[in-house]
Structures are given as C-alpha cells and as structure tokens.
C-alpha cells in the first residue's frame, strides 16, 4: 500500500470569543475543529459530510493553512505544513488548491477570466506572458469553456460556468490535491451534475486527489471513495462509501442517511428525526457531544467521551454502543 498523500493528526482550531466585559480576556472559545485525524491516499476522494456549523469548512482552511491551526499537524508528502516558513509553505501550497462554495463571490469582478485563471502563474512567477496565455486557453478547453471566454468578465457567466472557471484556476498549477469546499451546493441540480462529472473526469485524466466537502449525501455518494462524518468539530465515523451507506455504525450517521429522500414512495424507510438543533459549540455537551440528541442514549454517554474504534474493513466510529458489543 502506498504512502498517504496527506496525513492529518489531531488537528484543532479554537476561535477565542470576545468577552462581554471590555478589556478583559475571555477564556471561552468556539471549538470549531476539535481533534480531527485522517489520511488521504493519492488518487482517492475523501468526502466530508455534516450539518452546517460542524467545522467542515474550517477544517478545509486548516488543511491548506489558510488559517493557522491551534494545534495538530498536517503532513503533505511527509512534510508538516504547520509552522513551515512562509516561503516554503507558499511553494508547497502550489500542490494544494481549493475550490470554494460560492461561484459568484469567489471571482474578482474586475478581472477578466483569463487574468483570473493566469493569476496563480503570475503569483508564482511561472513562465512568460505567452506561455501563461497558452496555458489559460488550454485549461479553458479542459473545463469545457472556449478560448474567447478568456477576455470576458465574470459577471457574463452563469453559476456553473463560473465554477468551471474556479476549477480551471485551481488546476493551472498542476496540483496533486484539490480541496473542494461545497463546490456544487450553490448550483442548480442539473448544473451540479455537470460540474461533478467534470471533477470526476479531471480526476481520471490528471490523477487528482480530492477532499470533497458537502452536506449533500447524494453528491458525496456519487463522488467519494471514502467518507468522514463530522459532528461538532469531531469525526464521528469514517469508512468507505459502501460501508458508510450500507452499514452505518454511529447513530448520527444513521440519522443523516435516513434524511436522504426516498426514491419511491413505496420504499419502506424509517426516518430518524433528531431532537433539538446542533448544540452550541462554545459549550458542547459533556461526554459524547451527540448524547442529548441520540435516540440510543445510555448513562455512560453523558459522562465519557467515546473513542474512535475500528470495526473492520477500514471503518471507524466513535460510539459507546460499539464498545458494548
């Protein structure tokens, strides 16, 4: 088995919150990402799912060091990015690109599409004007746009086309891994399919690795090889897509999966409705963060934090129910 491309260990990000009393430091913080560990193998797609506010996007930004983590390590090809000096980080980060959620907000409205796609090359001083231009035109074709689009402005494009532009920009430096932060959630369903298919094609053609963040379980199922389920800043379950969809272990994953609409009204599927909303991440519940909403709550759940346990087939989950068996 090959070495993992990306190795994340015990990654944490606590955002301090302002104290209501002026000039006084607050010791409270939002635990946006709280001890996340995972590996990403070359060529695979790791899906990250969870409700809004569970720390998915923060985790994405921590992985490529857009925001510095509070603690933990992110190893890319064996080198730790956390605390790496700025120059070397800039160099390494060429191989880690991002595609953001909002195709309307992520393109500078005052630049032409050509300038936007060429920008990574300009920033890293790669090639001369002519070769940069050639690369831009080449990538426009790759993502299914045309060469004459290079001279147009972002406002002239639809959401799907803009996301193609974003993808082209992420590809221009020949990255190894692309972190997609909800790349299709702002798009129409029909356009979603086109963009997802494009991402899949690119993965095949360029041997790309993806971290694919989404809250849409159908999209994740179609896209991903492995899936990590996040809840309140922690990974509660992780495994191959087959294992997660066919044999979910954690009650939260079961509840999430039961929320996928039935394909036929005659399907006999039980819908697990969770009580309440996601708890406040400033003051998460004691013990298992999920216990207040869990339909299988036991006494131990409110006192002891469950550890991630291997249940075979590369499937891990953190729940006291698994310890019992």
């Amino acid at each position: 088995m090959s070495e993992p491309l990306l190795k994340v260990r015990d990654l944490r990000k606590y955002f301090p919150i302002d104290s209501p009393i002026p000039f006084k430091r607050s010791n409270q913080s939002v635990k946006a990402v709280d001890g996340v560990s995972f590996d990403v193998m070359p060529g695979e797609t790791l899906g990250v799912v969870g409700e809004s506010g569970c720390g998915k996007s923060t985790m994405a930004r921590l992985v490529n060091q857009l925001i510095p983590p509070s603690s933990g390590t992110v190893e890319f090809r064996g080198e730790n990015l956390v605390g790496m000096d700025a120059k070397k980080l800039r160099e390494t980060r060429k191989s880690i690109q991002m595609v953001f959620q909002d195709p309307y907000a992520s393109l500078d409205p005052r630049k032409t599409v050509g300038e936007l796609i060429a920008e990574p090359l300009v920033i890293h001083r790669i090639g001369d004007k002519a070769s940069q231009k050639k690369r831009v035109l080449e990538l426009l074709e790759v993502v299914g746009l045309s060469h004459y689009h290079a001279k147009r402005y972002p406002y002239e494009f639809s959401g799907g086309q803009r996301q193609r532009i974003n993808i082209a920009r992420a590809l221009v430096l020949n990255p190894d891994i692309i972190i997609c932060d909800e790349p299709v959630s702002a798009l129409d369903v029909s356009v979603q399919a086109q963009v997802i298919n494009l991402l899949k094609e690119l993965q095949r053609d360029y041997n790309l690795t993806y971290i694919f963040i989404s809250h849409d379980l159908n999209v994740v199922r179609y896209m991903c090889d492995r899936i990590a389920v996040m809840y309140l800043g922690k990974i509660v379950e992780m495994g191959t897509y087959k294992e997660i969809y066919e044999n979910p272990k954690h009650p939260y994953t079961k509840a999430l999966l039961s929320a996928i609409p039935k394909e036929s009204p005659h399907d006999n599927k039980e819908r697990i409705i969770l009580k309440d909303a996601v708890p406040n991440p400033i003051n998460p519940p004691t013990g298992c963060h999920f216990h207040e909403r869990c339909p299988y709550m036991m006494d131990i759940c409110s006192t002891k934090i469950p550890q991630l346990m291997d249940t075979g087939n590369g499937h891990i989950a953190s729940c006291h129910l698994l310890e019992e068996n």
């Binding site: 980060r93 991002m98 920008e119 990574p120 920009r169």
Partner: peptide, 24 residues
C-alpha cells in the same frame, strides 16, 4: 471570498491590496 481565494493561491499582501482590494 475572492480575497480569500487569492490568499489561498499564495499571493502576498502587496498583490492582494493593489490588484484586488483597491480596484474593488
């Protein structure tokens, strides 16, 4: 978001300010 994107591409402050923040 496009400022965050530019940061994620590895741009330095000067470039972000003069090429993206000021024109907008």
């Amino acid at each position: 978001e496009y400022i965050e994107v530019t940061r994620s591409l590895g741009a330095k402050h000067g470039r972000i300010i003069f090429h993206h923040v000021l024109p907008n």
